[in-house]
Design a binder for these strands. Structure first.
Lengths: 199, 199
DNA sequence: CAACAAACGGACCGGGCGGTCAACTTGCTA
DNA sequence: TAGCAAGTTGACCGCCCGGTCCGTTTGTTG
């Protein structure tokens, strides 16, 4: 355990400024927004970025960690909701709400991951699987979809809206509704391909 | 009209090699695969790339044009199919089949587009709208989805599979089926957000 | 308030990118 | 088959990126 003494006041403030600026910049310009731009947006020098985060990937990982962790907290709370179908829907809404798809792609793409990131990811998978299992048992979701399916479909609502310029901020709700209707048992047609492994 | 005299034999061959190599490279590595890699894969020098295409964007545009055009041809053929619901599904399958989502994102993102690209795009929108209208009138698709919705959802099946490493090549069929079930009238729940404008 | 470590900032570096160019090769045609 | 335009090539250019480094500033502590 690296017993780390508390940050100096200005350093702590800058760290938060950086995280916020980076999140904004990534949301606007995608993951290849430049470190220099992020620093400028936060009002600090570029060197400061690397004082707080070992590399750009490290900065991204810090953001992802925060957000997936927040999502996990929501998910865990929903695990004993009265209506499992509504709980799953709410979880997916929460995921879409904070443009989670970039986080997800980072979680998958990044070659080797920190232990932190790995653990938060498997925890998320577990939660999704549990939510889906409960919803399925409750008859709220068709019997042939798995947790792995939902993990993949999770960021689709947000993704499709990236194609419309100046999209209204909650257009994703429309596509989440359509996709969720496709997950319901009513009117389900058999699926032509087996699900991917759980991993 | 630039009345262009026919290409020399080796030049024509190299052009095809380049288009094929670029399509492969873009499919594997995404749109920021380097021009140098594309040239190497095609077995030509880097300068040759720029003799055939004014810029990297121009090369991308040429590929997109080809593929969207091919898709349009399929779409037009499907316009007078016996079963409009099946026709729409088949169109979406054709779109997913050739990893159309990168094309789509280029069509939308690229700031200013060639007249060619613009025309092929509006033609595609028209075709999708016609397919959807027919399917809706036939009762194969819920009444509250529009052509614009389908244009957006078109590449989602492919997109979601990009997250699974070593995905089986037609895993997208599974997610197309789920999404298409969400488009059917049976068991449709009202949508919480109006559709985006047609443009 | 003195003094020191912690934090900061921006010039700087190496590398890879898209794109250019001039010397060289090659397919076509008379 | 001779000659030339069309085509090819890879070294080269300028640019921007992630990351480093060290002289300077600043919060903290006794």
């Amino acid at each position: 355990m690296t017993s780390t003494r508390p940050l100096r006041a200005d350093a702590a403030r800058n760290r938060e400024l950086l995280l916020a600026a980076a999140a904004d910049e990534f949301a606007e310009r995608g993951l290849d927004a430049s470190v220099a731009d992020i620093a400028r947006r936060a009002g600090v020098g570029k060197g400061t970025v690397f004082r707080h985060f070992a590399s750009k990937d490290d900065l991204i990982a810090a953001i992802v960690l925060d957000r997936v962790d927040a999502l996990n907290t929501i998910g865990e709370r929903l695990l004993d909701a009265a209506d499992p179908g509504a709980a799953l829907l709410e979880f997916l809404a929460a995921a879409a709400h904070q443009r989670q798809q970039r986080d997800l792609s980072f979680l998958q793409e990044a070659g080797e991951l920190t232990a932190d990131v790995k653990s938060v990811r498997t925890r998320m998978f577990d939660i999704v699987h549990a939510l889906v299992d409960r919803a399925r048992e409750h008859g709220a979701v068709r019997t042939d979809v798995t947790g792995a399916d939902i993990v993949l479909l999770m960021c689709a609502p947000n993704y499709v809206t990236t194609y419309v310029p100046d999209a209204p901020p909650d257009l994703w709700r429309r596509y989440l509704a359509i996709i969720f209707d496709g997950l319901r048992p009513e009117g389900a047609h058999p699926l032509p391909h087996p699900p991917p492994p759980t991993r």
